[in-house]
Simulated scan of single mutants.
Amino acid sequence: MDDETKGKVKEALLEMEEPVHILIFTSKDNCPMCDDTVKIAKEVSELADKLTFEELNLESSKDIAERFKVDKTPAMVLLKGKDRNGSYMGIRFFGIPSGYEFTSLLDSILTISHGNVGLSDEAKEYLRNLDKDVHMQVFVTPTCPYCPRSVVLAHHMALMSDRITADMIEAQEFPELSQKYQVMGVPRTVINEVHHQEGAAPENMILDLIRKA
Score class of each variant (00 low, 15 high):
His135Val: 15
His156Phe: 15
Gly95Ile: 08
Glu101Val: 05
Gly118His: 13
Asn116Leu: 01
Ser150Arg: 00
Asp167Gly: 01
Glu101Ala: 00
Leu159Phe: 12
Val151Arg: 07
Thr143Glu: 11
Gly99Arg: 11
Ala158Gln: 08
Ile91Arg: 06
Thr165Arg: 10
Met157Arg: 05
Glu122Asp: 14
Tyr146Thr: 00
Arg128Asp: 06
Ser98Phe: 00
Asn116Glu: 13
Val134Gln: 04
Tyr126Phe: 15
Leu159Lys: 11
Val152Ala: 12
Ala158Asn: 07
Phe102His: 04
Gly115His: 04
Leu159His: 03
Val134Arg: 02
Asp131Tyr: 08
Cys144Met: 02
Gly99Tyr: 12
Gly115Ser: 04
His114Trp: 14
Arg92Phe: 03
Phe94Val: 07
Thr143Ile: 14
Arg92Ile: 00
Asp131Leu: 08
Leu159Glu: 11
Thr141Arg: 13
Ala123Gln: 10
Gly95Ala: 12
Pro97His: 02
Phe94Trp: 11
Pro142Cys: 04
Glu170His: 06
Thr111Leu: 02
Val140Glu: 01
Ile96Gly: 05
Ala123Met: 05
Phe102Trp: 05
Thr103Gln: 05
Ser104Cys: 09
Leu105Met: 11
Arg92Trp: 00
Thr143Met: 08
Ser104Asp: 01
Glu170Pro: 02
Met160Arg: 02
Phe102Gln: 08
Phe139Thr: 01
Arg128Thr: 10
Glu122His: 13
Arg128Phe: 01
Leu159Asp: 09
Glu170Ala: 00
Asp162Asn: 15
Pro145Arg: 01
Ser113Gln: 02
Leu153Cys: 09
Ser161Leu: 06
Leu130Thr: 06
Ala123Asp: 03
Val134Cys: 02
Cys147Gly: 13
Tyr146Ile: 01
Val152Trp: 07
Lys124Asn: 10
Arg149Asp: 12
Glu125Gln: 14
Ser113Arg: 12
Leu159Pro: 10
Pro145Glu: 03
His155Met: 08
Ile91Leu: 06
Thr165Ala: 03
Pro148Trp: 10
Val117Gly: 08
Leu127Trp: 05
Pro148Ala: 07
Val138Met: 13
Val151Phe: 06
Ile164Phe: 13
Val140Ser: 07
Asp107Thr: 09
His155Leu: 08
Val117His: 07
Thr111Lys: 01
Phe139Pro: 03
Cys147Thr: 13
Tyr100Lys: 08
Asn129Ile: 03
Ala166Ile: 10
Leu110Asp: 10
Ser161Asp: 09
Gly95Arg: 14
Gly99Ser: 07
Asp121Arg: 15
Ser150Tyr: 11
Met157Cys: 02
Glu170Met: 01
Ser108Pro: 12
